[in-house]
Computed example of a mutant assay.
Amino acid sequence: MTVSGGRVLPDPAHRAPGRGAHLHPVTECLDLAERRKAFPRAFKVQGPLDISLVRAQVER
């Protein structure tokens, strides 16, 4: 995953530039990361991030 413009973007090929983060592709892990506010910490950005695209990827 990477972040761009306040959105967390799936990066299954691990080719996007910049800081990346890993998440197990299961809904429970995504929910836990969201509750713990792990995404802003992992990407070292301020404020909430939109994870809707990652959630759609995981729920498939």
Score class of each variant (00 low, 15 high):
T2A: 06
T2K: 09
T2L: 13
V3E: 08
V3N: 05
V3G: 09
V3C: 10
V3P: 00
S4F: 10
S4N: 13
S4Q: 13
S4P: 09
S4E: 12
G5I: 11
G6R: 11
R7W: 11
R7I: 12
V8S: 01
V8W: 03
L9A: 00
P10D: 07
P10C: 08
P10L: 02
P10V: 03
D11Y: 05
D11I: 10
D11F: 02
D11E: 02
P12S: 06
P12A: 03
P12Y: 04
P12M: 09
P12L: 02
P12Q: 07
H14W: 07
H14S: 05
H14I: 10
H14G: 05
H14Y: 04
H14R: 04
R15I: 03
A16S: 11
P17G: 15
P17Q: 14
G18C: 14
R19M: 09
R19S: 09
R19N: 08
G20E: 06
G20R: 03
H22N: 14
H22D: 14
H22E: 12
H22L: 14
L23I: 04
L23W: 02
L23F: 07
L23C: 02
L23Q: 00
H24A: 15
H24Y: 13
P25Q: 13
P25M: 13
P25E: 13
V26N: 05
T27I: 01
T27Y: 08
T27S: 05
T27R: 01
T27E: 02
E28P: 04
E28R: 04
E28N: 05
C29T: 09
L30Y: 01
L30R: 08
D31Q: 11
D31C: 10
L32V: 15
L32R: 13
L32K: 11
A33F: 00
E34R: 07
E34Q: 11
E34Y: 07
R35A: 06
R35I: 11
R35K: 13
R36I: 03
K37Q: 03
K37L: 03
A38P: 02
A38E: 01
F39E: 12
P40K: 02
P40F: 00
R41A: 11
R41Q: 12
R41T: 11
R41F: 12
A42K: 10
A42W: 03
A42E: 05
A42N: 04
A42I: 00
A42D: 04
F43S: 06
F43Q: 09
K44D: 09
V45I: 10
V45Q: 09
Q46D: 15
Q46Y: 14
Q46T: 15
Q46S: 15
Q46R: 15
Q46C: 14
G47L: 12
P48C: 10
P48I: 06
L49I: 06
L49E: 02
I51N: 05
I51F: 00
S52L: 01
S52E: 03
S52N: 02
L53G: 03
L53H: 04
L53K: 07
V54M: 06
V54L: 08
V54Y: 05
R55Q: 13
R55K: 14
A56R: 13
A56T: 15
A56P: 09
Q57Y: 11
Q57A: 10
V58S: 03
V58L: 07
V58R: 01
E59Y: 01
E59K: 02
E59W: 07
R60D: 08
R60M: 05
R60W: 05
R60F: 00
